[in-house]
Nucleic acid binder design. Structure first.
Lengths: 199, 199
DNA sequence: CAATTTTGAGACGTCCACGTCTCATGTGAA
DNA sequence: TTCACATGAGACGTGGACGTCTCAAAATTG
């Protein structure tokens, strides 16, 4: 049963995303198995968190695939991506917290690749004229991933209902990222000047 | 020199926010002091991270204070808050990652208090009619903090220029949170229904 | 039912980070 | 200069998590 490993890994994520220093006992108990079995599945702690990272990255890559994030209207692509990525939001939360501390070259390359795909999506949206250009595509990618990760944490802690997650992300993010048809886009230079409160 | 402790704590944040399992050697080196001096300043690891949490919470509370987040127009309050909170974004990143794993009752109470202040700000904005009501105030608080934390990480990793941080957060977040004057607000129920891509 | 495999529980030994100590060096004040 | 104090470097003991092992119980398979 190859799915058994994934089940354990998902349980590990739910623990590690909140308490990165959790003992293996705790992770094993969260997965419903004994510490011995955990060691039979994964040689050690290092291997475990490495596989957790890989699973998370593969899941996110799969989300980008099934959402066909690289094709068509960028706004629609973002909506699809959110819908598909939210179930794995906790894995994204783990990635956001752990970020780039892996020595594994393979993992870093995978991470870079997915980041690049996200970046390309928002860049395409800007070229299509649907996303604002005052906000850099890099920042849009960053913020998008932060919101997905935040949703993962919030759901785990019971602060957000899972059924509201996709709607919440989509509305908030697109509201800030989409270029409003009517209003002329403010230039970054004009907006950067320290604007005070109200006229 | 009371500021010495804070300097060390800030250095500790920059390490711990990215690698929560970092050894004390690493933290000491990041702070430019020896492990012995680190132990002289803080009795142990537990005390260190506890004080890091306290510093972070106090800084965020101070940001809410100096931004007078509890008064006046909610939109202007958010703009002020972003401007003041961004310099301490890394501390928020630490809080976001560590979240609620403290046994200390004092810290948890402090955390709850600041969360409540944020929540009240967005609730007030909704009552004033400036913030969208389809997005719950709880979610707005959550997302706001996530973005600030994300900016902290991004700045540390050099993915975002510090001078762009406040503008990026403000524009993206307010763009999604502000109620657009013209368009009628979509109801959550209508929006929740699985909307496909484009008509 | 019998045989095989898998799992859980527990007992070890090992290793490393932590906490404490001492001592030499460096720094500031008298 | 001299003294008092703080700091850095290093050694040392300890505790606890980790990794490995064994054995009994349970599950699966025939």
């Amino acid at each position: 049963m190859a799915t058994d490993r994934d089940t354990v890994l998902e349980a590990a994520v739910s623990v590690l995303s909140r308490r990165p220093t959790a003992h293996l006992d705790e992770i094993a108990r969260a997965a419903g198995i004994s510490r011995a079995t955990l060691h039979r599945l994964f040689p050690g702690r290092e291997a475990l968190i490495r596989e957790v990272g890989l699973l998370s990255l593969h899941r996110f890559a799969a989300a980008l695939d099934t959402a066909t994030a690289g094709e068509g209207d960028a706004e629609a692509a973002v909506r699809r991506l959110v819908e598909v990525a939210v179930p794995d939001a906790m894995l994204c939360a783990f990635l956001a917290g752990e970020n780039q501390l892996y020595d594994d070259e393979n993992i870093n390359a995978l991470w870079e690749a997915q980041t690049e795909r996200l970046h390309a999506l928002f860049l395409r949206g800007q070229q299509q004229g649907v996303f604002r250009i005052e906000l850099s595509a890099a920042w849009l990618s960053e913020a998008f991933f932060d919101l997905v990760a935040g949703v993962g944490w919030a759901i785990q802690d019971g602060r957000l209902a899972p059924r509201d997650a996709a709607f919440s992300i989509t509305e908030l993010f697109l509201g800030g990222a989409l270029r409003r048809a009517s209003s002329p886009a403010p230039t970054p230079s004009s907006a950067r000047s320290t604007e005070t409160d109200k006229p």
